[in-house]
Design a protein around this nucleic acid. Structure first.
Lengths: 349, 349
DNA sequence: GTCGTCGGTCGAATCGATTCGAGGAGTGGT
DNA sequence: ACCACTCCTCGAATCGATTCGACCGACGAC
C-alpha cells in the first residue's frame, strides 16, 4: 500500500494552498465554485476520499466516536439479546450523525481497562449500570468524557436512560394477584457481586446493588405482595433459568406463579417446570420481563413486560447528541407494556 | 468539565520540557529515574491519565482501532449468535493489545458508508464476506486500510479466515446417507441479492454469490448426493426456518432428512415439522450447522457441524496483529466437528 | 481618478504528542 | 588541566487538518 495521500498533496495537485483545499472540503468559508471544483477534481484524481479523521479530530478535539462500555464480560453482554438490541438501536441512532460506536470491555475490578483510559471518545455509554466502586466511571470522569448511563443508578451526575421497570413489575404482580395467585416465587437477575444460583436470604438482600433487580423487587412491596421465595440466577440465560426454576419449583409446596426478571430466565423456568412434570399454566404460571420475541416457545407465548429496546437505544443516542451539543439532557424513563401470553392463568382451585 | 490537561501542562508542572515528559510516559529513550518520577508525580497531581490517543495517533499514524464492518443491517448481525460469538472472540483477541473494536455499519449498495470512508482504523474486518460490487471493500482499499475477511471469497488480495464448511457438510451428508437417507432436503442461508424464502431453481443457482452456501451446496456433490429440494431461507433466524421448513415438508412426499445451513434454521424446521405432525427423528431427521448450544431445544440435541467461534475470532485477531506487524498472513481454514444429536436417525422403513 | 469595499486566496499558528539531533553537565582517564 | 565520553535534557520539526487574520485584485461609487 502506498503512502496515504494528504490534503497537502491534493492542494499541490490543484495548484492551490492547503487552506484553500481545506475550504473546498469543509464547505465553510468563501471559495469560488471554480476553485472548489478544481480541488475536488484533483482529489478524485488522487483517490483522496476526504480529510483524515485523525487530523480533523486533533484540531477539533472531537473524534466522532462513542464508547460503549460493556459489562465485565463482553461475552455475556453480547449473548444477552436485550443489550444487543439496545446497542442496535444506539447504532441506528448515532450512526447517521457520523458517529462510530467503539466497544470497550471493562474489567470488573477497581482498575479501569486500558481502553477506558486511552481510547478516543467524545462520550461514553455505560450500558449495564456503573456499579459504585468500579473504576470505570471515575476514569471517564477524570478524562472529561461525558457519560450516559443505561439503567444505571441515578444521582451519579450523569443522565440515566431507563425504563419504568418498577411500574411494569407492579402491574404484572397485580395481574397475577387478580388471577388469584397468592404464592408467588421470584427469579431475579444477578444481584451483583459474585455470580451464583441460590435463594436470596436477608443477608444477601443487604448487599443489593443492582438497580433493576432492586426496582423489580421493590415493586412487589408496592403491590403488597410478599414472595414465597426469591432465587437469584447466575446470569440472564436459559440455562440459568432452568437451574433457578428447579430450586424454586422442586419443593414440597411450590409457588403457583413464578415471576422472573428476564424472558430468558422465564424460558428456563418453563423447561424446569416441564421437567418436574408441572404443566404451564395449569399447575404453575410463569411470567418474564423484556418482551423478547422467542419464536421457539411457540405455540406458547410468554406473559411478559415489554420494554422498547430500540427506543432505549435511540434515547441514549439522543442524550449523547444533546451532550455533544453542549446541553445537559434530563433523565429518561421509558414506558413498558404488560403483554399477556399463554403462560399465565388462574391457579388450580 | 474543565479544560483537558495536556502533556505540556504536566511538563510545566514538573519543570521539564515537553519532550522529557513524553519520554517519561513512552518509556523509550534515556531518562533518569528521578526526573521520570517527578513527571509522573506531577501527572498524578493534575489527574493526567496518560498521553491522549489523538495526539499519539496523529504522530504514529496508528489509531489503535480495528473496524468491524457489519453486514447491511447491524440488527441482523447482532441477532445472529454466530457473528456475535465470533465478534466476541475477536474482541478477546485484540483487546489485550490495546486495540478497540469499532462497529461500522455498511450500506448494502454501491456507495460505502460515511464511516467506512472516514473513521480512523488501522485495519478492518469484513465479517460477512465482501460481496463483489459492494463499494465497501474498494473504499477501504483506496484508503489503504488493510482488510481481513471473515468467510469472504478468496482471491481478493486479503487474508481470509474461514472454516472447513465444505468438508464438514460432506461428513454430515455421508453420515445421513449411512443412516439410510436418500431423500435429502436442504435449507440454505440467504444466497445473496434480495432476501426471500423460496425454492432454489436453476435460475437462482446461476446467481449464487454467497460462499458459505456455495461450499455447503457443493459438498452435496462431493458426497454424490442430489438434494430432492433446496429452499432458500430469508435469514438465519428461527422464524425463517419455520417458513422454509413448511415449504420443504408440507408436500406430498417430503424428504426423510433435512440439512440446514444454520442451527437456528434447523430449530425452525423442527417447529415446522412438529406443526405438520411429523415426529423428529422418526418421520424426518433434521441437522443444523454451527454447533450452537440451544438449551431450549432440550431434551432434544441438534445434530450439527460445530465450528469454533472463539477460535475464529481469535484467528481474525491474529491476522490483524500480523498485518499491523507488517507481515502478510496466510488464509486460515479452521476445522469443524460433526456432532451427532438426537434429531437424526435412520428413516422409517 | 481615487478610494472604499468585498470576495477570494494564502500564511501561519494551532491541536497533542513523538522523535531525532544538538547541546550541556558531569565524570574518568591521561 | 584538558580532552573524550557518557548520560540526560531540551528545542524543533513533524503528523494532517482547521481557522483566523492578512493580503490582493477587481469593481462600484463619488
Amino acid at each position: 500500500m502506498t503512502e496515504r495521500t494528504t490534503l497537502a498533496d491534493v492542494a499541490a495537485a490543484a495548484g492551490v494552498s492547503v487552506s484553500t483545499a481545506s475550504l473546498a472540503f469543509s464547505g465553510a468559508g468563501p471559495i469560488s465554485a471554480a476553485t472548489k471544483q478544481r480541488v475536488l477534481d484533483a482529489a478524485a484524481e488522487l483517490g483522496y476520499t476526504g480529510p483524515s479523521a485523525l487530523g480533523r479530530s486533533l484540531r477539533s478535539g472531537r473524534s466522532g466516536i462513542v464508547g460503549v462500555v460493556i459489562g465485565d464480560q463482553l461475552r455475556r453482554s453480547f449473548r444477552d439479546p436485550v443489550s444487543v438490541q439496545v446497542l442496535d438501536g444506539l447504532v441506528d441512532s448515532v450512526g447517521p450523525q457520523g458517529l462510530g460506536v467503539l466497544l470497550v470491555p471493562a474489567t470488573g475490578g477497581e482498575a479501569a481497562d486500558p481502553l477506558v483510559e486511552t481510547a478516543p471518545m467524545d462520550a461514553a455509554v455505560l450500558l449495564f449500570g456503573a456499579r459504585r466502586g468500579e473504576g470505570t466511571f471515575e476514569a471517564l470522569r477524570r478524562r472529561g468524557v461525558p457519560v450516559v448511563l443505561g439503567e444505571g443508578p441515578r444521582g451519579l451526575d450523569a443522565p440515566v436512560v431507563g425504563i419504568a421497570d418498577r411500574e411494569g413489575t407492579r402491574r404484572l404482580v397485580e395481574y397475577l394477584r387478580e388471577l388469584g395467585h397468592s404464592r408467588i416465587g421470584v427469579v431475579t437477575l444477578p444481584l451483583g457481586g459474585e455470580r451464583r444460583c441460590a435463594p436470596v436470604d436477608a443477608a444477601r438482600m443487604a448487599e443489593l446493588d443492582c438497580p433493576p433487580a432492586e426496582h423489580r423487587l421493590a415493586a412487589l412491596d408496592d403491590a403488597g405482595v410478599v414472595p414465597t421465595a426469591v432465587v437469584e440466577a447466575s446470569a440472564s440465560l436459559v440455562e440459568a433459568g432452568v437451574e433457578a426454576g428447579r430450586v424454586l419449583l422442586d419443593v414440597a409446596d411450590p409457588p403457583t406463579a413464578v415471576l422472573t426478571h428476564s424472558d430468558l430466565l422465564a424460558a428456563g423456568v418453563l423447561i424446569a417446570a416441564r421437567d418436574l412434570g408441572l404443566r404451564v399454566p395449569e399447575d404453575v404460571s410463569v411470567a418474564g420481563f423484556d418482551g423478547l420475541n422467542l419464536p421457539w416457545l411457540a405455540p406458547d407465548v410468554l406473559t411478559s413486560v415489554a420494554q422498547p429496546f430500540a427506543a432505549k437505544g435511540a434515547a441514549i443516542g439522543d442524550a449523547i447528541t444533546a451532550i455533544l451539543a453542549g446541553e445537559t439532557p434530563a433523565d429518561v424513563e421509558l414506558e413498558v407494556e404488560l403483554r399477556i401470553g399463554t403462560t399465565t392463568a388462574p391457579p388450580r382451585a
